[in-house]
């Protein structure tokens, strides 16, 4: 049960948060179609540290960028988006 360090609320249970997507998969409104579909469907899916977008959906409702290890589940960095 992760304890996610929300920069707005402090550490909170993972139940309060929702994972959105990895940072590398952002599709911008003005991306060309090829670029957009590549971002949407081609994921690095790293076995190790990666950057992710989460939202504190049952808390402050704010979006976070988490840098976390997908094997150890350790957080290295969290920043408000």
């Amino acid at each position: 049960m992760l304890l996610i360090p929300c920069p707005h609320c402090g550490p909170r249970n993972q139940e309060e948060f929702a994972y959105e997507r990895s940072v590398d998969s952002l599709v911008r409104l003005d991306d060309a179609p090829g670029v957009a579909m590549a971002a949407l469907y081609a994921r690095a899916n790293l076995r190790g540290e990666d950057h992710e977008i989460w939202v504190h959906v049952q808390g402050c409702g704010q979006w976070l960028r988490l840098t976390r290890d997908r094997v150890t589940h350790a957080f290295r960095d969290v920043e408000a988006l």
């Binding site: 049960m1 992760l2 990666d50 997908r70 094997v71 150890t72 589940h73």
Partner: peptide
């Protein structure tokens, strides 16, 4: 568990 992980470990919830 609804988030990326390679840990073979989940949350009790």
């Amino acid at each position: 568990d609804m988030f990326p992980s390679y840990a073979q470990r989940g949350a009790p919830i």
